[in-house]
Amino acid sequence: MERIMTKNEMVRVLKRLTAEIMEDTSGGKNICLIGIRSMGVHLAEMLKNEIRKSEKKAPPVGILDVSLYRDDFSRRLPRRIKETVIDFDIEGKDVVLVDDVIWTGRTIRAALDELIDFGRPNRVWLCVLIDRGGRELPVQPDFIGKKIEAEKNQWIEVKIEKGKAEVFLTTEGRK
C-alpha cells in the first residue's frame, strides 16, 4: 500500500480546485455542488468550506447515490443503496459533480442520467480528486486534483475520516 497524497497535499489540492472552479464559473455565482456517494460527498463538503472561505458564501450541496442507474447492475451483487438528497432545484444551475476517483467513467455516466431526472441544469462540470486513467466511456473531468497511471489490478483508496485525509494506492483489490 503506497500513500499517494497526504493530508497537507489534499488541502492544497482542494484550494487549487476551488480557485479553478471559481475562475471558470465567474465566482461560483450560479453553482451547486453534488457529491457522488460515498467519498464524493465528503469532498463536496470540503470544497464547500473552501468556497465559503474564499467567497464568503457557500453553494448548496447535494448527494447522489447512483446505484439504481448503474449499467453493471445485473453483473454484480447489489450494493447497499442510500438515499439521494438534492433538496434544491437544479434547473438552470451550474452543477459541479464531485467524486473521489474517476476510472472507467461509468459512474459519471450513471450520475449524469440520474441528475437529468431532477431537472435541466445550465451546465454540468466534473471535479475529481484523482484521475487514474483507464476510461471506457468518453467522459473527461473539468477539474482534476491529481493524475496518476494505475494498473487494472490496483485500487485507489481515498480515506477521509475524523480529521484524517489521505489517498492510498493498493494492489490488494477492493475491501
Binding site: L68, F73, R75, R76, L77, P78, W103, T104, G173, R174
Partner: peptide
Amino acid sequence: LYLLAGGKNENIA
C-alpha cells in the same frame, strides 16, 4: 425486486 435482481459477481469495479 432490486435485491433479488442483482448479479452474483463481486469483483467488478
